[in-house]
């Protein structure tokens, strides 16, 4: 493919659903264009229902677009592939396998010719990377929510994907656990120079993790309304970041977008608490965790 292509290139993506009654078809999103560079961490933010999960599933090859193209590394995506790792919203670990076996299962699929020992050593390395060496023989039901999501992360990184796709991976976790795992994720991404495309509702999460945040307008006919560069150097330190005016400017900007795009919707009371931290930086909370503004759907 031509050199103008970025590593992940989305062109004119659209998704439509035909109306069941034969009326006008529902256009969830259309004309979605964006690109992600190699090694970049990009977050996509938008209200639920705007089709952000659908976009991620199309990139993963699990869903198909009504129109438009997805290129990864210059090749068009036509189906799921091992070069794209996916971390699902609800961890999706196979419940009859232990943590280690879940990771091994993916490793074996990625390198079918490896010996048993190679597979095991490789899987153990990644289970160790997320700090679960002591719990590797436990079944998912015997792990906490945070540990399960860590196994999900280990499983996705273990196949060494060129592109990592994450669909609200920390949505179900409490703030403390979420902050810890975010830090671990950043460390692993830095070490592996991982390219990441992540979907989230959480503005703080987006600002903390991403190099660039894409803002998606509400559907129908949702689009990428804006791309916001996060002007914070890495490595980012959570506690210091909270005193940084650039952090607050970016955060306010994203929040303002979400509030504005939620405009005419009377069912959005959750956002009323949001404006407070914009005017005066709050002191860092004791745990240094994000004081995230959660929309209704973030609690799912």
């Amino acid at each position: 493919m031509s050199s103008k292509h970025k590593f992940l290139q989305i062109e004119g993506l659209a998704r439509r659903f035909p109306d069941a009654m034969g009326g006008e078809e529902l256009v969830v999103f259309d004309g979605v264009d964006f690109a992600v560079d190699k090694g970049e961490f990009v977050c996509l933010i938008g209200h639920s229902g705007c089709g952000k999960s659908t976009i991620l599933n199309i990139i993963a090859g699990l869903d198909s677009a009504s129109e438009g193209y997805v290129f990864v590394g210059g090749r068009e995506v036509t189906g799921p592939g091992l070069e794209r790792g996916v971390i699902f919203q609800n961890h999706s670990l196979l419940p009859w396998k232990s943590a280690l076996e879940n990771v091994q299962f993916s490793v074996r699929a990625r390198w079918p010719n490896w010996s048993r020992r190679q597979v095991r050593e490789h899987a153990e390395k990644f289970v160790g990377m997320v700090g679960l060496s002591d719990a590797k023989h436990r079944k998912p039901s015997q792990l906490s929510g945070g540990m399960r999501q860590r196994v999900g992360i280990a499983r996705a990184f273990a196949i060494e994907p060129k592109l990592l796709l994450m669909d609200e991976p920390f949505g179900a976790l409490d703030a403390l656990t979420r902050a810890t795992i975010q830090d671990e994720l950043i460390a692993i991404c830095r070490a592996t120079k991982q390219t990441v495309f992540m979907i989230t509702h959480d503005v703080d999460e987006a600002v903390y993790l991403a190099d660039r945040v894409l803002l998606m307008s509400n559907g129908p006919h949702a689009r990428i309304a804006e791309a916001v560069e996060v002007p914070l150097e890495r490595p980012r330190v959570r506690a210091e970041m909270l005193d940084d005016p650039r952090y607050h400017r970016t955060r306010s900007h994203l929040l303002q977008f979400l509030i504005d795009s939620h405009g005419g919707d009377a069912h959005a009371p959750q956002l009323k608490a949001a404006p407070t931290p914009m005017t005066a930086p709050e002191p860092a909370s004791a745990d240094g965790a994000s004081f995230s503004v959660m929309t209704k759907e973030a609690r799912r």
Partner: peptide, 9 residues
Amino acid sequence: FINVSRTLE
């Protein structure tokens, strides 16, 4: 589970 299997080809 099916999606996990699909992403693993």
